[in-house]
C-alpha cells in the first residue's frame, strides 16, 4: 500500500546541511499498526511528513495506493491528503473556537458529503471514541485525553485508509496514553485503517504490530510482532 524507495531528505540548518533521512526504503501493507521509533533527531517525524505528503523529498520515491505522491504538485497533494490521509498530532491541534462536534465535522465539510451524512458520521465516530454527550464542549472544556480522542475522531471520520500520528501520546500521562493507544488499536482492527505512528516511548512501541527503528536517518531494524 505504501512503498518508500530509497528516500533521502536533507535540511538546511544555517550553513550546515542536516541529513534527516539517508536512503530509507520501506513497504507498509494495508491495515498495519506500525510504529516508527527512534531517538530524537533520528528522522521519525520527517519520514511521517513525507508519507503524509506535507514535505518534499530530495531523492527517492514514495508511492501510496499506486500513486507516486512524491511527484505530485502542491494542489494534487492537498487533494490526496484530503481524501486519503488522516492526521493525529502530538499537541492535538484542535480549533479552540469550535466544539468537539465541529472540530470533527469540519473535515467532512472539505469533502463532497451531504449535511445529513456529516451529522451521522460525526456523531457515530464521536460515540466510537467515547465522547458521546460531549459533542458541544469546546476543547478548553475537555481533558488532554479527551482532546486527543477528538483528534482521533477527526482523523477517522472521513474513513481514510491511512492515519499518521506523530507522537500521539507524548503530551499525555501514561494511563491516558495507554487508553489512546488502545483506542487507536481498536479503530485499526475495526475499520482496517493503516496506522503509522512515531514514538520514542517503549510502552507505545509495545502496542505496535510492526516496529521500525530509525537511527541517524537510516532504518536500524524492522520487526513484525504478533
Amino acid at each position: 500500500m505504501i512503498k518508500i524507495d530509497n528516500v533521502v531528505k536533507n535540511y538546511e540548518n544555517g550553513e550546515t546541511e542536516v541529513k534527516a533521512l539517508r536512503g530509507v526504503s520501506l513497504n507498509i501493507e494495508k491495515g498495519e499498526f506500525t510504529s516508527i521509533a527512534g531517538p530524537s533527531g533520528s528522522g521519525k517525524t520527517t519520514l511521517l511528513n513525507l508519507i503524509g505528503c506535507i514535505d518534499r523529498l530530495d531523492q527517492g520515491e514514495i508511492t501510496i495506493k499506486n500513486e507516486a505522491v512524491s511527484k505530485m504538485n502542491k494542489v494534487e497533494k492537498t487533494k490526496f491528503r484530503r481524501k486519503n490521509l488522516g492526521f493525529v498530532f502530538q499537541t492535538y491541534n484542535l480549533i479552540p473556537v469550535l466544539s468537539a462536534y465541529e472540530n470533527v465535522a469540519f473535515v467532512l465539510s472539505l469533502l463532497d458529503v451531504s449535511e445529513a451524512e456529516v451529522k451521522q458520521r460525526t456523531m457515530d465516530i464521536l460515540k466510537e471514541v467515547g465522547l458521546e454527550g460531549m459533542e458541544n464542549r469546546k476543547p478548553s472544556k475537555l481533558s488532554g485525553g479527551q482532546q486527543q480522542r477528538v483528534a482521533i475522531a477527526r482523523a477517522l471520520v472521513k474513513k481514510p485508509e491511512i492515519v499518521l500520528a506523530d507522537e500521539p501520546t507524548a503530551n499525555l500521562d501514561s494511563g491516558t496514553g495507554e487508553e489512546i493507544l488502545k483506542l487507536m488499536k481498536e479503530m485499526n482492527e475495526k475499520h482496517g485503517t493503516t496506522f503509522i505512528f512515531s514514538t520514542h516511548d517503549k510502552m507505545v512501541m509495545d502496542y505496535a504490530n510492526r516496529l521500525v527503528m530509525l537511527h541517524d536517518g537510516q532504518i536500524q531494524s524492522d520487526e513484525s510482532r504478533s
Binding site: I54, T78, F80, R82, F87, F89, N93, V107, R154
Partner: peptide
C-alpha cells in the same frame, strides 16, 4: 500558524 498547518495537512486548500 500551527492550526493553519493542521488545516492544510487535513486537505483544506490555501484558497479556503
Amino acid at each position: 500558524i500551527r492550526e493553519l498547518g493542521m488545516m492544510r495537512s487535513l486537505g483544506m486548500s490555501d484558497g479556503k
